[in-house]
Design a protein around this nucleic acid. Structure first.
Length: 277
DNA sequence: CTTACATCCTGATTGC
DNA sequence: TGCAATCAGGATGTAA
């Protein structure tokens, strides 16, 4: 379920505990994720030191000693949690704990994913940019590369709904269903609008709304709508600041009009029919 | 190239 | 209460 803010929050919290640690062993309980984890994964990861944690879009990249990086994506229901050997022992439901990373300080990191839509693979660091998962990604939404000129050029002539294109990782990388809804509310643009018909001013408002929404979500350590937890098991706070997502029928905070819901690209969409045109 | 849609899978919630 | 239908933060592969 994680979008960019959840993965970034995870990266920041997890980094404090695991950077500098060495992975002494890896146990695979269930290799069948969206694609199967390679059988030689444990052998190749064991003995490697964790040098750095990075994020690209919704991917977490764990740089290991020896020149390889672990590329991970949490899919809809994945989580990477830090298990303190003294503090958290026995407090977790171990169901769906698919991959267990034993660290040299006695603590552990566990990949848990009920729906198994996630990804864990090892990639030579030099090949990261060309690996299929990352090679076609659009710009980071919180970066200078994502500006009005870029977005205007990219969606020019497109007939798809703007919300679907904001969630298209090739257009801009890291936005999912929750934050697409929130960004469009802040921009005052209805999610169903055909992207190619947007005026320049509307495109500018979308771009201008993006970084504040995502940064505020990161500050709140992400959104816990149903089950997201950060690496320490703590829920995110941004749910209390959602303006439209999950608020069908409730009054718009700006104008009081009931929030509406509709379906776009098989995902539910929320918007204020008054504030968003 | 673009768009629409099914599909992978389990669990929580909703509706009758 | 019980059970079935519906929905869930995502990405991809196929077809049109």
């Amino acid at each position: 379920m994680p979008e960019l803010p959840e993965v970034e929050s995870l990266r920041r919290v997890l980094a404090r505990s695991i950077v500098g640690r060495t992975i002494v062993s890896v146990r695979i309980n269930e290799p069948r994720l969206r694609r199967a984890v390679a059988p030689d994964f444990p052998k190749l990861v064991s003995g490697r030191k964790i040098e750095r944690l990075r994020r690209r879009a919704k991917y977490l990249i764990v740089d290991l000693s020896g020149g390889k990086s672990m590329l991970s994506h949490l899919g809809m229901s994945g989580s990477l949690t830090y298990r303190d050997k003294d503090f958290m022992t026995g407090q977790f439901n171990a169901r769906h704990d698919h991959i267990h990373f034993q660290l040299d300080d006695g603590n552990a990191m566990v990949y848990n994913d009920p729906r198994r839509f996630g990804l864990l693979k090892l990639v030579p660091r030099a090949d990261l940019e060309s690996t299929p998962e990352l090679s076609a990604l659009g710009p980071e939404p919180v970066s200078n590369a994502f500006d009005a000129a870029y977005l205007a050029r990219t969606i020019h002539g497109r007939k798809a709904a703007i919300k679907n294109l904001l969630m298209d990782q090739r257009v801009v990388a890291g936005i999912g269903n929750i934050y697409a809804a929130e960004i469009l509310f802040r921009a005052g643009v209805r999610p169903t609008r055909r992207a190619g018909r947007l005026k320049r001013a509307e495109i500018e408002r979308i771009v201008d709304a993006t970084a504040p929404i995502l940064n505020a979500a990161i500050d709140g350590r992400g959104t816990t709508f149903r089950s997201y937890r950060d690496s320490s098991g703590r829920p995110g706070d941004f749910v209390t600041r959602l303006k439209v997502y999950g608020r069908a029928g409730e009054p718009c905070y700006v104008c009081g009009t009931p929030i509406r819901t509709t379906t776009l690209g098989q995902r539910s969409s929320f918007y204020c029919p008054t504030c968003q045109r």
